[in-house]
Design a protein around this nucleic acid. Structure first.
Lengths: 339, 339
DNA sequence: TTGTATGCGTTATCAA
DNA sequence: TTGATAACGCATACAA
């Protein structure tokens, strides 16, 4: 069993009786090759099982055909879907996804240092915290970046965002119209920018309706933390009539806890809203009223913008914002006001 | 604004007054470099912002530091978790994940051809269909591969699997002990090997208990398909007393459909079991009785085996199988036998 | 249209 | 321990 050596363009060239550069040209669109040599090269290449080596190509062209996707390990149920869509759309454009995990162990700086060495064509960062200092590093290294659901002051980086403000105001409006006045906000983890933003917006929206000093319980975006947040609050307070959760999974936790531990009916005794529009909000046992992020459009735009910036690095940074769409579930109803 | 050129080892060498190879040696463990030159090189490298170019390194070492992960687009809720864990464990070993999507558009062959060009160190395929022909290609290209929840006849490739047989027999045993006799199997999509295996095992297990000709409804692993499968069956048949679903998400769909459309109580009127052990099975509204795959152990083993085979390609293929663990929910009870 | 020669940025080999 | 030099496999400028 002779351990096969890799077939190179030289091997093909020799076998086909042409020069190495001729072989190379065959695999690049728009290079001048005669029909005859092209077919000859392709035939022998096929015979020998030759494929151009992507690594060698990267070294010379300075394009890797890879896009780094930075994923925060803060698990929000919606991100697997986002990743999957990004991957699909990027493959269509002939770019591969190289995954980087942003957890607490390795800081962003370490990851970025790592990313540069791979000569990736661009970077998409999903809900990760970026400041202008980090963005400047991208500029220095001349690598385009698109932030997903994050933005940075001064429009220095392209962003694709869901309009949290609009969505949360919409939810608060509905609750307000039902005359709720005893609110509880269940927020996500303090380390998450998205969580913090949604929480602040909820507080602001409530204040604009005259509801001040609304209490906040913190969770970590998980189901259990939603349950826990609600029971924590109930341990030493009376029940709210409406709970605004920073994501759907916690909202579902709140609903279950309210039903199971406190015998509350949703929405008769308690209204609950979430955010994201994950699949489970449609499940019959919950039918959560929430805001759905337009992931299809957002992922498409993220990829389009990134490729555009790869093609024309001098283009200015873009910001695109989508309104979320209201999912009218059945977890919101009139406030049950005590007499 | 002078567009910075990339800093290379030559630049560092010149600035530090040493040879280029000296710089290179500093970044490779176990190469002989004096303490003095090492510190000198590191200092100037730091000053200039030098990092070795991973691409150039790949070209010469023939190791890319990347592992291709093939993900089937058949979305089963458990795979995002698997991917996330694999990514984490591989990063710890200093390997990056390069994502490849196996959807219906591009066949496996195309993807494999693509993979070779990236000179990945190894491949992990999650629940993707592989035959011996594909496995042989890996052998030809001398790239180690580990299959996740798939195996191939003749032990020709390493696999990490959950023992579906044991798990499904355990579930069937429980149902049998409760004296069920009217069963329905809700299977996954026909294209999925895992789905097919689970379905066949369920039929076999039921037959071993004397239940023959058990009807099968097909879904696609999604919640809606679970609901639909159940209502389809009910449209022209009487209710079963037990439903065996090929994954948790469909099981949850079945429960909701049974409750909502047919007024059945779970488990009083209908017992339901699933498979996988996704987070949602613990949610209070469902508390599904199911089998949990040991994803932690399986992903760890997948990475360990792969790295081992990368280090010693001559090692024989390994198969590791774990039993799933029973999650005793509250969706199984005694059969309600008609009088 | 084709071939020659050079370079991409590293690691590996060898002699000093 | 160090430095010169040759790969790695391709793309590209230039000459033919």
């Amino acid at each position: 069993m002779n351990s096969k050596k890799r077939v190179t363009s030289y091997d093909v060239a020799k076998a086909a009786g042409v020069s190495q550069s001729a072989v190379s040209r065959v695999y690049i669109d728009g290079r001048s090759v005669s029909k005859k040599t092209k077919s000859k090269v392709l035939a022998t290449a096929n015979e020998l099982g030759y494929k151009p080596n992507a690594i060698a190509r990267m070294l010379i062209t300075k394009r890797s055909g890879m896009v780094a996707v930075i994923l925060s390990s803060r698990v929000n149920l919606i991100y697997p879907e986002v990743l999957s869509l990004l991957n699909k759309r990027l493959s269509e454009k002939n770019e591969r996804v190289l995954l980087f995990n942003l957890d607490d162990a390795a800081g962003l700086d370490d990851i970025l240092e790592h990313i540069w060495t791979f000569q990736v064509d661009g970077v998409i960062a999903i809900a990760a915290h970026f400041d202008n200092k980090s963005i400047n590093k991208f500029k220095e290294h001349q690598i385009p970046v698109v932030l997903y659901n994050r933005r940075v002051s001064g429009h220095s980086a392209s962003s694709v965002c869901c309009n949290h403000e609009q969505g949360i105001y919409e939810l608060v409006n509905i609750l307000h119209d039902y005359e709720h006045s005893k609110y509880l906000v269940v927020a996500g983890p303090a380390e998450s920018d998205v969580a913090q933003e949604r929480c602040e917006l909820a507080i602001k929206a409530l204040a604009s309706k005259g509801n001040n000093d609304v209490p906040i319980q913190y969770g970590d975006f998980s189901y259990d933390s939603g349950r826990h947040a609600f029971s924590q609050w109930m341990a030493s307070n009376s029940a709210p009539t409406a709970v605004i959760c920073s994501n759907d999974t916690m909202a579902i936790g709140v609903i279950d806890e309210a039903r199971k531990q406190f015998g509350l009916k949703v929405p008769e005794d308690l209204s609950v809203v979430g955010f994201d529009g994950v699949n489970a909000v449609f499940w019959h046992s919950y039918q959560l009223t929430t805001i759905k992020q337009p992931v299809e459009q957002m992922t498409k735009a993220a990829v389009d913008i990134l490729l555009e910036q790869i093609a024309s690095p001098e283009n200015p940074a873009q910001l695109r914002v989508w309104s979320g769409s209201l999912i009218e579930g059945s977890t919101v109803g009139p406030a049950k006001n005590e007499t």
